[in-house]
Design a protein around this nucleic acid. Structure first.
Length: 484
RNA sequence: UCCUCUUUAGCUCAGUUGGUUAGAGCACCUGACUGUUAAUCAGGGGGUCCUAGGUUCAAGUCCUAGAAGGGGAGCCA
């Protein structure tokens, strides 16, 4: 018989004989097995239809139906007599095959033991946390969001571009990089002036893991028109926060002939599509996350609680236009704000200084109370490739700020004018020759274009309501942590 | 990297002014249990008090250094 997934079994006609396989979540009264196979959040209840006088004869199998064991069971689907579920599967001992044992003494030492665990402990056992309701829900949603991203871009005629993960360009300015090398770490070959001789390394030059696929994506966009990347990204920054990972996944669309307004429109439409997709396709898991969040919120003091629930926050973003304003306007608002007047901000506010997260949070969570797109930042505080505005002071940058998360998207219209671009590179102490291939796109039929980077895990934080980024990626890499 | 808090049983935590044999709930083990929903009831086992020094007659408790983790900040997505 072919295996039926529990997700489908729960919808199937009563009276049918089916085969299911999965892992035991709990076993009660020598009779009721809660079986989960990951196809959905819900368990299937197996009811063992035997008299107690058969127990002795089947002691071996009875003993081995323990939390976390894997089973294969054939049985008949019937209407449930209990109140917790609509249907259940009735089976005899002879219908149950133990596929994999789980010793209760050992299970007890893991998060598989059927009780509530802290997120910190679950993180330490990331290899087992998939087996929990919470993390199976999160990673089903993660899959659905990844799929929705590809679907969105495919439906809009974008091309998925695989930009390199190993890269020799060191001028992107997006952060500290991880070196990729096969040289002997203890005794690397040295040049005459005592530096590491990377000419003897695998690529014949110093290479690193990518911090962004943007520059290469621009090259693709200059022919394919619209491209996007979706891949791992590596930052060797010593960031110890709930919003940063050393290895994370980033989506970077890049569109020829788009200006900053087009770019804002794309980012807003894209985010709304993804949130709508989650509501349309992940409701069972979202309901579970909602209930979990509500239980958590009850533990907190009133003033720290969310004003809106998870699903309400998602619907709220869908039904409101993102607030679009310039950096200069944002500074004005902040200078006129109550917290500024009462000297409640820790960091200074002045034109030319980057906004601190307390300022961004004020704008998003207090002033506008919805997602905000900030544009036209001072040129000195943004990357070299962002297009100079005509005022001579600002660049066509945009940051999309979300409540509770901060910057979820960073992007810009790119500088397409060769002279301006070279001028900017010099200002930022980047040797133009090192990016000769990038500059070539401006030599041969240059065109206005724009793009942005979306942090995949930050999106997932918003969609799942998880407040630590380490809980929305299977195996988080952070300073001092690369287990599994 | 900075600020701050935490580290005691498998887990979550209590542990008084430094003082006898370090406790609870859950989990686990043994037994009971055919309509349970993280089942329930009875009994039982289980400790490198984060690590290394130090003070003291005596340290889970006080001091110094370090490690790991949480929260916040910087950097950013």
């Amino acid at each position: 018989m072919k295996r039926t997934k529990i997700k489908d079994a729960l919808l199937q006609q009563k009276g049918e004989k089916i085969l299911v396989k999965g892992w035991v979540r709990s076993f009660r009264s020598n009779r009721f097995i809660a079986l989960n196979d990951g196809s959905c959040l819900s368990n299937l209840q197996i009811v063992i239809d035997e008299n107690p006088d058969t127990f002795e004869k089947n002691a071996e199998i009875l003993k081995n139906i323990t939390t976390a064991a894997s089973l294969s069971i054939t049985g008949t689907l019937v209407e449930s007599l209990g109140s917790g579920q609509a249907v259940e599967l009735v089976a005899k001992f002879s219908d149950i095959e133990i596929l994999g044992l789980a010793n209760p003494d050992d299970v007890q030492k893991t998060i598989l033991q059927p009780k509530r665990h802290s997120l910190e402990l679950l993180r330490e056992q990331a290899h087992l946390r998939f087996r929990t309701n919470l993390f199976s829900a999160i990673f089903r949603i993660r899959h659905n969001m990844a799929y929705a991203i590809h679907k969105y871009f495919n439906d809009k005629g974008f091309n998925y571009l695989h930009t390199p993960i190993l890269t020799a360009s060191d001028a992107e300015g997006a952060g500290e990089m991880f070196r990729a090398s096969i040289l002997d770490a203890k005794n690397p070959p040295l040049t005459e002036d005592g530096k590491v001789d990377f000419s003897q390394d695998f690529f014949g030059k110093e290479t690193n893991l990518t911090v962004s696929g943007q520059l290469e994506a621009e090259l693709g966009a200059m022919s394919l028109g619209q491209v996007y990347t979706f891949g791992p990204t590596f930052r060797a920054e010593n960031s110890n926060t709930s919003r940063h990972l050393a290895e994370f996944w980033m989506i970077e669309p890049e569109v020829a002939f788009n200006n900053l307004t087009d770019n804002m429109d794309l980012s807003e439409d894209f985010l709304k599509y993804l949130i709508q997709y989650a509501l349309d396709n992940c409701m069972e898991d979202l309901q579970f996350l909602l209930q979990r969040e509500e239980a958590e919120e009850k533990q907190k003091p009133q003033n720290e609680r969310n004003e809106m629930s998870l699903i309400d926050r998602m619907k709220f973003v869908l039904s409101n236009d993102f607030e679009r304003l310039t950096y200069t306007e944002a500074i004005e608002i902040l200078l006129n704000s109550n917290p500024y007047k009462k000297k409640q901000f820790k960091y200074p506010i002045a034109w030319g200084v980057d906004l601190a997260s307390e300022h961004e949070r004020y704008l998003v969570e207090k002033h506008f109370k919805k997602p905000v797109i900030l544009i036209n930042y001072p040129r000195e505080i943004k990357a070299f490739y962002m297009r100079n505005n005509d005022d001579g002071k600002t660049v066509a940058a945009m940051d999309v700020l979300f409540p509770g998360i901060g910057e979820i998207i960073g992007g810009s219209q790119r500088e397409e004018r060769m002279d301006q671009l070279i001028g900017k590179m010099k200002d930022f102490h980047i040797e133009p020759q090192s990016l000769w291939w990038y500059l070539d796109t401006r030599r041969f039929g240059t065109a206005p274009h724009a793009g942005f980077g979306l942090g995949f895990e930050r999106l997932l934080m918003f969609v799942t309501g998880m407040t630590n980024i380490r809980d929305v990626i299977p195996f988080p890499r952070t300073p001092k942590n690369a287990e599994f």
